[in-house]
């Protein structure tokens, strides 16, 4: 407190990163109109499908839907949050403004990623609470934490997809398109209704969608099996790479125009 530290260049970069991240998180909390629906949506459906309609004697539905709605939670905060955020910042000129300020380029990406992890965590906490208290879901300590980490990290590729949407269109269009992708993807990935209830030809779509792979990873965590996770992670990684690459190209192009 008594010492005055002269900001070094490295120190100021870190500080800029930190400030931007902090601001991004603060924005999430101060403008909850985009955050609240993406948190409330999975919690509501979890209560419905996992708790209320769980007719079986066991708590298998409560555990199953914890994995499913957890996936929906992080996909929602990642995809919707990033898509809308990017589109509005881009059309509002903030991205252009940023370029003329001496802010590190990585700062924007880092801030978005951290803020998304934070938003995802906020979406998961109520689900885990409902599952533990009302769903009587019992997992090992490692499984609980593993499930949360799987969902948070597995949700990052959806930020990239959101970024891609936000980079290619205006704010209003982004909201519409994100929703248009979001809801059908959840449905065809079997996150809302188990795939077993789908006709065979429809079941074939699921593996093409990243949401299905995240759902599978989450389910594996609840079952405690680690075999066969790699494929799903690789698919998610491929989606992340593809979407970020496209976003970078789109952003560069929009700047050049």
């Amino acid at each position: 407190m008594n010492t005055v530290t002269l900001p070094s260049r490295a120190g100021s970069t870190a500080r800029a990163l930190w400030l931007e991240t902090e601001t991004e998180c603060a924005r999430l909390l101060r403008m909850p109109e985009s955050l609240v629906p993406t948190i409330a949506f999975p919690a509501f459906f979890y209560t419905l499908f996992g708790l209320v309609f769980d007719m079986g004697a066991s708590n298998s539905a409560a555990t199953y839907y914890l994995a499913m709605m957890g996936s929906i939670g992080v996909i929602g905060t990642g995809l919707m949050g990033t898509a809308i955020g990017t589109a509005s910042e881009r059309s509002g000129g903030w991205l252009d403004m940023r370029r003329v300020m001496s802010l590190p380029r990585s700062g924007w990406v880092v801030a978005k990623l951290v803020a998304n992890l934070f938003a995802g965590l906020l979406a998961l906490l109520p689900l885990f609470f409902l599952a533990a208290v009302f769903g009587e879901v019992r997992l090992n300590q490692g499984q609980w934490i593993g499930l949360a980490l799987t969902l948070l990290i597995g949700g990052l590729p959806f930020c990239a997809i959101g970024l891609m949407i936000g980079s290619s269109m205006g704010e209003r269009a982004a909201i519409a398109i994100a929703n248009l992708i979001f809801l059908p993807m959840l449905f065809f990935s079997g996150l809302m209704i188990p795939l077993a209830f789908f006709p065979d030809w429809l079941q074939g779509i699921a593996p093409l969608l990243p949401a299905w792979h995240l759902g599978e990873l989450a389910l594996m965590q609840t079952r405690g099996d680690s075999a066969g996770q790699l494929v799903h992670w690789l698919v998610l990684l491929a989606w992340a790479g593809l979407a970020s690459g496209l976003s970078a190209w789109l952003l560069r192009r929009s700047r050049q125009q």
């Binding site: 965590l121 533990a132 300590q141 609980w144």
Partner: peptide
């Protein structure tokens, strides 16, 4: 104060995860 709130939040999240019920 801000750091305290952040630390408190992180601690609360950690605590939450350690309080989650495990199979008896």
């Amino acid at each position: 104060k801000r750091y305290l709130i952040m630390a408190g939040f992180l601690l609360a999240v950690l605590l939450f995860f350690f309080l989650l019920p495990t199979p008896q």
